[in-house]
Each structure stands twice: as structure tokens, then as C-alpha cells.
Design a protein around this nucleic acid. Sequence first.
DNA 1: TCAAAAGTGTTAGATTTACACCCATGA
DNA 2: TCATGGGTGTAAATCTAACACTTTTGA
Lengths: 224, 224
Amino acid sequence: MTFYSEHSKVWVSVDVIIFGFDEGKLKVLIGRRQMDPGRGEWSLYGGFVAADEGIDDCAARTLQSLTGLHNLYMRQVGAFGSIDRDPGERVISIAYYALINVKDYDEQLRQEHQVEWVDINSLPELYSDHNKMVRQALRQMQQKMHTEPIGFRLLPQLFTLTQLQHLYEAVSGQEIDKRNFRKRIKDMDFIEKTELIDKLTSKRGAALYRFNKRAYNEDPNFKL
Amino acid sequence: MTFYSEHSKVWVSVDVIIFGFDEGKLKVLIGRRQMDPGRGEWSLYGGFVAADEGIDDCAARTLQSLTGLHNLYMRQVGAFGSIDRDPGERVISIAYYALINVKDYDEQLRQEHQVEWVDINSLPELYSDHNKMVRQALRQMQQKMHTEPIGFRLLPQLFTLTQLQHLYEAVSGQEIDKRNFRKRIKDMDFIEKTELIDKLTSKRGAALYRFNKRAYNEDPNFKL
DNA sequence: TCAAAAGTGTTAGATTTACACCCATGA
DNA sequence: TCATGGGTGTAAATCTAACACTTTTGA
């Protein structure tokens, strides 16, 4: 195959912004870069796109090698390709963001990869243009979050309305009125109240809810 | 430089979705592919990213080589990188969309490049995954159009409110109530009525308006 | 004189926002 | 018994959507 041989090739990598929700805060998984150049700097987790691998596949593989999880919610943020974005060589990177339930992430795996959950509002300076990637990913995720029921991917299967509200507050960065919030939830039949009660975070106990995907597909009206 | 030499490189190209508004319709500039594989198929205009060129620069260059225009409004749509998206070889392509005023596009240049304005609702099957790119570009542009004053890039500097309304109808694909539309326009001080009258499209004549960027920057409240 | 596009306000309904108190329980 | 978080409704304000006729003028 020589169709395009007059043109030059470049390295393409993938970087993943992994969002988690813990301690009432939106967090991102970052670690110390293990490779030159920039070894030791705070960085997103990433990897190179192989010759025989689609970019979405590469992102999924990268994500799984870090978390051990698959079928995570994942979306492309975009391509970053300034000529000198990488201090080593010319690399174009495609950013993806993913949502995981922090509790699903095996603590041992986390330590092996030497990554940490860091509050998105307290991020250090990251390698290359990774801060920019995070900002863009956050903006895109915020938008989606208000029009599609993706927030549940950041929570356990069973959650209280207070948890859900705090999640939305953490992501959007604004306070939400409790009564108005619960009113809107009540209108969405696919957010189902269960019989179960959570007694961990309050003395009185709070009803646990569940997102019913099937019901959502039948009547996909989501707006928060 | 050998930091990443164990990894393989790939070809990266850029494809541009050029939107124009003409005859009351939203149109896209497409042409017959001049290169193998796929020679002769309908296709977006594109080009390869050079080794010493940022991807945004590449898109701007590609856009200018086709239109002769610069400083066009342009945004990245995203990266497309399925393993077999290109029938020839493995190429990752980054799509961009751009907005131009059809009247600014030199007819001779258009013919030289053998590209045509085609109604977005009557697009033929395009090369590779270009139809998908167009769909995604349209969706993104629609969203932006309702929150940022980018529509004016598709119109002459002076335009009538009817033109503006038809533009929004063409982009969103829905009819808009004339009186409600004009009411909302009146609330935006940066859409200025001029003394000039357009007598081409109506006997009575319609007032010509102008988008005042300076005024917009002082009070950027746009919502349509 | 008539066809064609420009221009102009009002009202009902829907949505959004603001706001404060009682409840249940474990410590 | 009291501190903590859970749970609930109403009213005002704002925004949205529906709707029809008069004006101007060139053909």
C-alpha cells in the first residue's frame, strides 16, 4: 500500500480524563508520569495508538489497563495537536473522558499504577497540555450531564437523592435548591425509589434510589 | 529524538465541513475526490497534516487553499480513527467545520477546485466516513448557533431579519414564529438596525441589520 | 388593484425560582 | 434532649408559545 507515501506520519496517543465522585467532590485520576520526557510530572494516563487499533479501541484498552473495568461510559473530547505540545517529539493526542464509580476501582490496582484521585478544583500543573484537556472534558461532561442521564455512572447503583444532588452540585459548581431538585427527580419515572434505606449518612435514614435504564429508554425525558 | 520510537506512527489528515447559507438552505461544500483510492467519489475537502504543522494550522491552511479566505470561523469536530475507515490505508482524520458567507467565495476558485454547494438535506453518499463527520459537525454547529452569535458568519454583513430567521430555520430544521423571533432580536442590542433598506427581496423593502461585535463583547447575552 | 413580503402586541400557559418548617433517629 | 440530615408545598415571577392583521410598493 503506497497511496499516501509522500506524506509523513506522526505518533498519535490517547489520554483519558477519568472522573470520579467521592467525598462530595468531583475528582480526576492522575499520576506521576513514568516515562521520559517529563518523568515524574503529574499527568493524565495515556498510551499510544497502535497501527492496527482504532482510536476508540485504544481509549477503551487504556482505560481498562488502568482500571480493570470495561463498559465504562466514555466519550471523545477532541484532538490536541499543536506542533510543540509534547516536550519530546511531535505527538498528536486524542483526549477521552470516562466516568467511573470510585468504589468500583480496586484500591490495589490504583496503587500499582500510582494514580490518585484529585479534586478537580485543586489540580496541580499537569504535563503538556493536559490541564487544557481536563478543562475541555469537564465542560463537555457538564453539558451532557444536564441532558443525558450519565451522572449515575459516577454513583453506586443505589444512591440517595442527597448524594445525587451533591453530585450535580460538584459537577456544575453551583448550589441547587433541595426542594426544586427533588421535584424534578419525581417527574422522572426512571429514577426509582426502592424499599431500601441508607442509614450510613444519617440517623433518620434516607431512601435509596436506582436508575432504571429500561424505563429511561421507553421515555427518555431527562433534564436537570 | 527517540523517546517514542518503539511505537508506530500513522497518517493524520484533516477534513473540513464548510457550511454556507444560500437560497434559504444550509449547504455544504463537497467535491469529487481527486486521489486514489476512491477517486471520483463525493467527498469533503481535506489534506494531510505535515510533520511540522499543528492540526489547527493544517485545517486553516486547507480551508484557505480551498476558499482563498482566512480568518474564517472554524471549530474542531473531533477525531475519526476506526481502523478501516479509509479504504486505502490506516489514516486518522480530524474533522473541522467552518462557516463562510457564500457570496465571499470566488466562483472561479470554486470551479477550479471542482467543489459544489449541496443542500445538507440532499447530500449524496460521501467517501469513507464523511457523512458521519457532516452529521456530527451539524449537530455541534446547531448547538453553538443557539448560544453564540456565529450565524452571522453565514450571512453578508448587512442582512434582513427575514434572512436571519430563515438561516436559523435552515440550521435547526424547524419553523420559527416570526413575531417571537423578532422580539428576541430586539432584546439584543448588538444586532443593530441600520438606515439601509433592502429592496431586492421585497417590494416594500426590509430594514438591514448588522452584527456589532464590539457591542456584543460588552454585553454578551445571546440566546436563540 | 393585487400579490408578496415587512412589520407589529397581547394573552394564556408553562416553567422556574425562592423560601421554612417538621420528622425520625442515634448519640 | 438535641444535633443531624431527610423530607415536603406554595406562591410570585419569568419565560414561552400561540396567534392575525395592517403596511408598502412594484408589477
